[in-house]
Amino acid sequence: MDYTEEPRRQVRRYTPEDRLGYQQLVGQGLSVRQAAAQLGFAASTAAKWLHWETAESSSKTPAPMGCPPHPGRDRYHQLREAGSSLAAAAAAVGVTRRAGHKWDRQLRDSGETAPLRPSPRQVEYNQAMDTMRLISHAPQISSRFLSVLERERIKDLQQSGASLRMIAAELGRSASTISRELTRNSDRYGRYLPYGAQRLAVTRRARPKQPKLLEASPLRDWVQSKLELQWSPAQISATLVKEFPDQLEMRVSHETVYQALYFQARGGLKKEVQAALRTGRARRKPRGQQRRPRQLGQEMIMISDRPAEVNDRAVPGHWEGDLIMGAGNRSAIATLVERKSRFLMLCYLPEDHTAAGGVN
């Protein structure tokens, strides 16, 4: 058997012009593989060139274990800063997406801001539309209502494991207020969100509202049946909670009952209203016209303030008066006593029981 020597493959020798052309293509934005394919040589050779040049001129800190940084790392960060996505920048320098994630993480750990991947889902919003005012800056109507800050505090204390009474003590509220707040303003998943709770509370507080007793309903029929039995609105409101503990729609305050009755009186149903209320009034009394009980010390001269000569009965001419009321306050007698001589005078008051009536 004859042995024939195969011809040896000719090794291509690269010239400095090849390297310069490769550097120009990479500088124009082509990837390592694209530049190597355009020049007609292996991509591994071009990667070695870039690796050697970058290792000599790079000012970055070498990677662990003494390895120099990847030659395309600087180019990768430049592309990311220009707005390229992670996948596009990694493909441009010939690395995997995992390596790009690693470089971004290392850049964040060093204290710098890594370029974020631009989101493909960009929505052009109407810039002329009115923006909603922040709820936290909304004016507080009254201290009776919970504010946004208090609702945020409730959320924080609830997450820390505090009980209802602990939360109430922290906010200076009653435990029932906190319980009612968590029950009424939580979402359907049972989560309490402060700003969502604030929106629900503001919506629920909006006026005007449809009166509960305006239209026919089981609640209205029940209230009307109790009014016919001469029940007071306060009794009706309290009994509803006991009779229907699980039916929140069967709730009404005594003030709502009063408003419904007096509203009917404006339409000419005064007889029905008078029969429904124990007081027999068909209209409400304004608070300014209600009779206020007289309090001692207001526009009165106390006995302890009289002069000493009157108290010692030394000088005549000082009289002391009093009023004696009969049965049912239907009759009255005024008494006048001269303090020194003890002379007594009785004055019958048939009609007027005031001081002016007694003088007349």
Rank of each mutant, 00 (worst) to 15 (best):
S147Y: 08
H318I: 11
F244G: 01
P139D: 06
Y22K: 08
A90S: 13
S232D: 03
L20Y: 05
Y192L: 11
R105A: 14
G29Y: 05
R199P: 00
R284K: 13
G326C: 07
P69N: 14
M166S: 12
L269D: 12
K102L: 09
Q274W: 00
S179N: 15
M302L: 14
I141P: 03
V11M: 07
R144Q: 13
I178C: 11
G190Q: 06
R292I: 07
A35F: 10
R283W: 09
G288M: 03
R287K: 13
S179R: 15
L229A: 10
L240E: 03
I303C: 05
A47M: 04
T15K: 11
L107S: 05
S237M: 09
S59L: 10
L193R: 14
D187G: 14
A169N: 11
Q10V: 08
E152K: 08
R144Y: 14
R220Q: 07
R12S: 05
L116C: 06
V93K: 00
T61D: 15
W319S: 00
P245K: 05
A90L: 02
Q210L: 15
L240Q: 03
I236K: 07
R339Y: 12
L171R: 04
R151N: 06
L344I: 08
S225Q: 13
S232G: 06
P16I: 04
A275H: 04
E181K: 10
V148F: 02
D2M: 09
R287V: 05
